[in-house]
Structure formats: C-alpha cells, structure tokens
Design a protein around this nucleic acid. Structure first.
Length: 195
DNA sequence: TTCAGGATGTACT
DNA sequence: GTACATCCTGAAC
C-alpha cells in the first residue's frame, strides 16, 4: 500500500473529504498494526464555517494545529471523555480539516475490540459489533488515539498514516453534518460524506 | 425500538 | 460558569 502524499491533503477540503472515503488508516501500536477503511468523513473550513473551531481566523492554543501544513493530525478532546481525529487540509496558514467519523475494521480487529470493550471481537454482542467503529469517539478509542497525536505528520509513515485504497464501489452519499446544531447557517452545509 | 440524562475535562466568555 | 464536531446506560414503550 502506498502512503498518501502531502499533495493529497493540499487541496480543497471538500474534495479531500470525499476522496478519503475508501482509503486506509494505519495505526502502529506496540508492534501491532491496526488497519481500518474510512467510510465516513466531514469537512470543516475555518474561513466560512461557524462549526469550525477556527471559524473566522481565530487562533488559540487548541486551534493552532488547524493552521498547520496539510497532512497533519488534529486531535482534540470533546465532552471531557472522547477524542476526535481530523486530517488537516489546504496550505499551511489556512484553517481547514476533515473529521474522521466512521471506519470499518480491516485488520487488528481483536485488538481494537479490546481497546473499546476490554474483550475480543468474538466476545462482543451483536449490538456492540453493529456500533463498533461508527463514530469519531469510537474510532479514536479503538485505535488508542489521544491528544499526544495532535500535530503528528501523517505522511512520515510513523505510528499513524494513511494509504491509498481502491476507489469506493457504489454510491457516495452527501448530507448535513452531525452534532453542530449551534452553528447557525452552517448547520445545513452538505459537508458530510459516507459510503 | 427510541429517548433522556449523565459522565467528564478543556477551552473560552 | 457554560458549552462542547460524543457515547453509554437504563427506563419506557
């Protein structure tokens, strides 16, 4: 598999969000390799988007990573207990990123099940399997991603990187984003993509 | 099956 | 002090 180059991220955020569908995210953890396939993303663009942490060019210690060069990981803590993983897009100095909302397991499934529920995948209930990796907090828990990964270079082939996959077969869905009811007109932006 | 409420810490007002 | 790009549990149906 080929690591996605920085040029992949250095484009319009909506294009990157759509093109990320079907690509593979690789997490190296304690010598193991966890691989998932991306199935759901959302775009956040600081310049025009009230839902973005860096809306209107605001710069704080937290949002600083959103201005980093493309291909950087932006990880933040939400609701006091969950992490969300984003991929920074567009040129350095422009605040924009793609939120990873959902994936499907490719390999390392058992280890991810342990990270999520403390037991192997075979032991999970049907309900737990159905809701395994279908939310941003869940993905980060399964992959053991925390704020220590904030600012990580995703093109360096380290403990976290992305690889090209086959183009997704079937339809790409487009719709409104989730969990941003406060964001006024940006609530209705069709910036969510899923397979 | 859906739904309300709580957990929990950081950022920002 | 309030809000937050969420998830889980338990109660009601």
């Amino acid at each position: 598999m080929k690591t996605l180059p920085r040029a992949f991220y250095d484009r319009d955020t909506l294009e990157v969000a759509r093109d990320l569908l079907g690509t593979y995210l690789v997490r190296r953890l304690d010598g193991a390799e966890l691989v998932v396939r991306i199935t759901e993303t959302e775009a956040y663009v600081g310049a025009v988007d009230k839902a973005c942490h860096a809306y209107g060019g605001r710069r704080t210690a937290r949002t600083e990573t959103l201005y980093a060069r493309p291909g950087t990981a932006y990880v933040y803590l939400i609701y006091g207990m969950y992490h969300c993983l984003n991929f920074v897009t567009e040129p350095e100095g422009t605040a924009a990123a793609v939120l990873l909302r959902g994936v499907e397991a490719v390999s390392g499934t058992d280890l991810m099940a342990y990270n999520r529920f403390g037991r192997g995948y075979e032991q999970l209930t049907a309900d737990q399997r159905k809701n395994f990796l279908n939310g941003p907090g869940k993905v980060c828990k399964a992959l053991a991603i925390t704020r220590t990964h904030n600012g990580l270079d995703l093109t360096a082939g380290g403990e976290l990187f992305l690889c090209a996959g086959e183009a997704p077969t079937g339809e790409i869905h487009v719709g409104k984003r989730i969990g941003i009811d406060y964001a006024e007109e940006a609530v209705d932006f069709p910036w969510r993509f899923w397979l």
